[in-house]
Nucleic acid binder design. Structure first.
Lengths: 210, 210
DNA sequence: TAATATACTGTGCTTATGTTCACTTGTCAA
DNA sequence: TTGACAAGTGAACATAAGCACAGTATATTA
């Protein structure tokens, strides 16, 4: 029952989230009121009632600052309120299903928002050293961000069959050349509109555990 | 000035953290009191004053539930958020002070616990490409973990003067050779017990934003 | 065109919450 | 054995904060 919020309600919700991030606890009615230039605490109460009714917050009536964010509000598990995103880790890719399908899921990686801002970002574990010279090693996590367009030279995660591979992307007519960053390996050349082939995202971050 | 806490103070601090996790906002004086069987709010106030004086919390006087946890409180023990650690980012290093001193602090990086388990881990931003062949580039974050002993070949964060540098560690008698991973650079050789020199930690992770 | 929802103002009230002060008790180090 | 510190009790107090109710205005929907 995801009921949409009005602009005003969303602004109030965002303010509450920001305050929780900034100070570690929710704002009071009067703090919300003064932030929005509202002169009556009742004006705020109406908003909070609406947010609660629509499932974005839970309140503990009577309690000072007794506002809890629900997952709907974007508090996946209180993570988002601390500059954190949970990025799905994509494991073995099942044929035909979208990359973020549950079948492919292999847990989550918590990532600081300095590394990811957008939604839809996924993580995968690199196999092989074909991107060694680009500083991407066997066993590294890479974060991939789906894009509407990829440019020559972009490092991308490409799906070929049920395998994900990380390479530099070079479109060549109706083919694509996937170029490794390691002289020991040669390029992979695939038909652009092969059913089996797609580019899942551009690599936006690398994380290595040593 | 990391002053130790008494058992009771630690218990109170833990309770505050638990409540923040559980409900999303800090407890009131009376909630703390009733949890510990304390009958006077003043009993609680003394604890909070002590926690504040010792740097584990910050309070906004007069405000209901105006308790903020400081990094000190979070670093003590499991982070308030599951699976996540907040790692202090070390910037320019002031002479003479410990690496984690406030003067050096440049914010925090949230990191999944798959990358860090221990306390005391710090992050710093790499300058220069001297570790390029080890897959550590200019601008990368590295996570350093202080150790009691370092072994030949370890990649470490070393402090020389007020500069941090990342290199491979090779002890040689009462000198240390800091070896880059880039043929364009030569090694740095320093006296082991120079005042100006110390090894701050072993590099346990690398994170790159592209 | 009546009903409903949003978005408020203004006032008064209740209570949840933090503060202050005086005093007690036990422990531990100088 | 004095003094400092931790850890309280108890009561009075001030105020921060939530709630209720009576209105007003506008827009949208049935």
């Amino acid at each position: 029952m995801t009921i949409g919020l009005t602009n005003r309600q969303r602004a109030v919700l965002d303010f509450i989230k920001d305050e929780i991030v900034r100070r570690g606890y929710p704002p009071s009615f009067r703090e919300i009121a003064s932030n929005f230039g509202i002169k009556s605490t009742n004006g705020v109460k109406v908003h909070l009632d609406a947010l609660e009714k629509k499932g974005y917050i839970n309140r503990d009536p009577g309690l000072a600052r007794g506002i809890e964010l629900t997952p709907l509000a974007g508090a996946e598990d209180a993570s988002i309120i601390r500059n954190i995103r949970k990025v799905p880790i994509v494991g073995r890719i099942a044929a035909g299903v979208p990359i973020l399908a549950e079948e492919n899921l292999d847990g989550y990686l918590a990532v600081d928002t300095t590394f990811v801002q957008a939604d839809g970002v996924f993580a995968l574990v690199v196999t092989g050293d074909s991107m060694k010279d680009a500083g991407i090693f066997h066993g590294d996590y890479v974060l991939g961000k789906p894009a509407s367009q990829y440019f020559p030279g972009d490092i991308v995660a490409a799906i070929i069959g049920d395998e994900a591979t990380v390479k530099r992307y070079y479109p060549e007519g109706d083919r694509v050349r996937l170029e490794p960053a390691n002289p020991a390996f040669g390029p992979i050349i695939v038909e652009k509109d092969l059913d089996d082939f797609r580019v899942a995202g551009k690599i936006v971050a690398v994380m290595r555990k040593m």
